[in-house]
Simulated scan of single mutants.
Amino acid sequence: MPDKNTYPVQLVQPDGRRVHDRVHAALVSDIGATELRALYTDMVIARRIDVEATALQRQGQLGLWPPMLGQEAAQIGSAHALHPDDYVFCSYREAGVAHVRGVAPEDMTRLWRGVAHSCWDADAVKMTNPAIVVGAQGLHATGYAYAAHLEGAEIATIAYFGDGATSQGDIAEALGFAATWGAPVVFFCQNNHWAISAPVRVQSATPIARRAFGYGIPGVQVDGNDALAVLAVTRQALAHARSGGGPAFIEAITYRMGPHTTADDPTRYRTSAELELWQGRDPIDRMKRLLDREGMWDSDFERQVTERADDIARRMRAATVAMPDPEPMELFDHVYATPHALIEEERSEYAAYLEGVRP
């Protein structure tokens, strides 16, 4: 069960030195050189995907993109804790989680390109598509988790959301239901300090993890820029949920170094000094320093990681630019799983409209 504290768990300092924390270190005692290198590799790939997608939007190839720059450790560390059958309910910023869950780079941008209602097959990777409605995924994760529990499935679900989403009623309702019914769901809050232009201090007068306590849910704060610590507490929370202990809450303290989306200008509401402070806590640099300190870093490994990340970015770019525009009538496909009278009515009306305006 996660610790009921609001002191961020940390296992690796920004300079790469280990922190003496036997309790949480034991949760990742099996993580050796291979696993640490895998964490680093996925973090670099996640950033490369993010940088490339941002460039694609700036070049007019995507309508919008929500950057995750600076949040790689929170996403990759938590995603590595998941079992294949666990189900992820994301917000709109979890491209790093999607990569770990097996989403192909060719499928990353379909929604953001505006050519489809979704990016990937959710059931194939056990992860929902980007959710634009802030906080709604908390309810979806709770309902799915409870239904899976009733069917005897030994899985957990995880709901990702930001600090701003904790002000939404949907998250409050999800916490209340999950606590009352013991749903095996982990609520994972990426506290990146900014809900668009509103700082976290106006979202909560107390550490966000403490909110869970009022619902009877164990909560923990973790250094969200420390991938190893995130992996440890997420493993702990998922095990708590899977074993019948009910829901758990994680607040990962991280920072959004880029804009909220590519439609945002963060220089209008935050200072350059704040950004520089968090750049010094860069999660990828931290993992690199740990690998270097412990003799797991060399130029060949660095080259392999760079080449792999560049290849994934190349594949994503090529697929994005080549995506054909959908036929107008495809707008009504894949809206409901079964026939729906309203959709059929709208389909007929739109078909008649197209017939009237086509030359």
Rank of each mutant, 00 (worst) to 15 (best):
P2G: 10
D3V: 13
K4P: 12
N5M: 08
Y7I: 14
P8Y: 08
L11H: 06
D15T: 01
R17Q: 13
R18Q: 12
H20S: 13
H24W: 15
A25L: 09
A25W: 13
S29A: 15
D30A: 10
I31A: 09
I31N: 01
G32W: 01
A33R: 13
E35V: 04
D42F: 08
V44A: 07
R47H: 08
Q57N: 12
R58W: 07
G60D: 08
Q61L: 08
L62N: 05
G63C: 05
G63V: 06
L64R: 09
E72K: 05
I76H: 06
H80I: 00
L82Y: 04
D85T: 12
Y87T: 13
S91D: 11
E94K: 05
A95L: 13
A98Y: 03
H99N: 02
H99M: 10
V100M: 00
R101Y: 01
D107Q: 11
G114T: 05
C119T: 09
W120K: 08
W120L: 08
A124Q: 03
V125I: 13
V125R: 09
K126F: 07
N129K: 01
A131V: 14
I132M: 11
Q137S: 10
G138Q: 05
A141T: 01
A141S: 12
T142M: 02
T142D: 00
A148Q: 15
E151K: 15
G152L: 06
T157W: 10
I158D: 02
L175W: 03
L175D: 02
A179E: 05
A179L: 03
A183E: 05
W194S: 07
W194M: 11
A195G: 14
A195Y: 08
I196G: 04
S197I: 03
R201C: 04
V202D: 06
R210L: 14
R211S: 00
Y215N: 07
V222S: 11
V222K: 12
G224H: 01
N225V: 14
V230T: 12
V230R: 12
A232E: 01
T234H: 06
Q236K: 15
A241H: 10
R242W: 07
A248Q: 04
F249Y: 14
E251I: 10
I253A: 09
Y255G: 13
T262A: 07
A273T: 04
E274A: 04
R281K: 15
D285P: 03
R286D: 02
R289L: 10
L291D: 04
D292L: 10
M296H: 10
D298C: 08
F301D: 04
E302Q: 13
T306G: 05
A309S: 12
R314E: 12
R315K: 14
R315Q: 15
A322C: 11
M323H: 02
D325L: 14
M329Y: 09
E330T: 15
D333H: 11
H334F: 06
H334E: 13
Y336F: 15
T338N: 09
L342K: 15
E344M: 09
S348I: 12
L354A: 04
G356H: 09
